[in-house]
Every structure is written in structure tokens, then in C-alpha cells.
């Protein structure tokens, strides 16, 4: 069986790249454009991992993580935050919001897969 991943990012390019990296690694991938869309997509799913960008329209990554963690059924899902370089405060903030780990953009597909394995096997 393959891991199921939900990736949320407002940039189409980033979504494409995540999709490519994730599906290439054999994961089942779901994509969403922002936090609100992410919650819609998440409804009815129980992915093994969620990957989310922070800065997004409508609902940003913090809001999204918060919303995910506030639902009991999703509370245990590991969440990886996509951050850009030199954003150490962002990691702190992400963790405070309930994120499990982070992926630094631009990501290297093998690092992405490694990060997923560290939080979801």
C-alpha cells in the first residue's frame, strides 16, 4: 500500500513539483490550492501526511494547521510545512501551530521523501 499525501500550496508550479515528486515516489497524492480548499479536499480523506505552504490566500498555512488539528480525526496526521530559506522563526511558528516538521523550498525530491518518511514511515 502506498502512503497518501495531501499537498496544499497556492503556487501551481509548486503543486506540480510536489505532485511529480510525490507520485514518483509512489505516494498517492491529493492537491489543494489553499487552506480552505485543503480542508475541502481533506474531508473524507485520512492522508498519512499533509504538506502545506504557509503564505496562501483565503486561509494560510497556520490557519489550516489549526483547523486540521482541531478535528479529532485529523489530530494525529503529521503535517510538514513548506518554508523558504532562512526562516527559522517560521519553523518555530509552524511548530507552535502544530506542524510536525518542515520542508525547505526549493526542495529536493529525495529530501521531501525523506522528510515524509521521518514523520509517516
Amino acid at each position: 500500500m502506498s502512503l497518501e499525501v495531501l499537498a496544499v500550496d497556492d503556487s501551481r508550479t509548486m503543486r506540480d513539483m510536489l505532485n511529480l515528486a510525490l507520485t514518483s515516489a509512489g505516494f498517492t497524492t491529493h492537491l489543494a490550492e489553499d487552506g480552505v480548499h485543503g480542508l475541502e479536499v481533506l474531508d473524507g480523506l485520512e492522508p498519512n501526511v499533509i504538506i502545506t505552504d504557509i503564505n496562501m490566500p483565503r486561509m494560510d498555512g497556520f490557519g489550516f494547521i489549526d483547523a486540521v488539528r482541531s478535528q479529532e480525526k485529523w489530530r494525529g496526521i503529521p503535517i510538514l510545512v513548506l518554508t523558504t530559506e532562512s526562516a527559522s522563526e517560521l519553523k518555530v511558528k509552524a511548530r507552535a501551530a502544530g506542524a510536525t516538521g518542515w520542508i525547505v523550498k526549493p526542495f529536493d525530491p529525495s529530501k521531501l521523501v525523506k522528510a515524509i518518511k521521518m514523520v509517516a514511515g
Partner: peptide, 11 residues
């Protein structure tokens, strides 16, 4: 935070 020791051991 959603981390899982098992996976770290696997890593």
C-alpha cells in the same frame, strides 16, 4: 506535534 518515534527508528 505529530511525530512518531517508530518512523524515526525506521529512518
Amino acid at each position: 506535534s505529530g511525530n512518531e518515534p517508530l518512523y524515526l527508528l525506521r529512518a
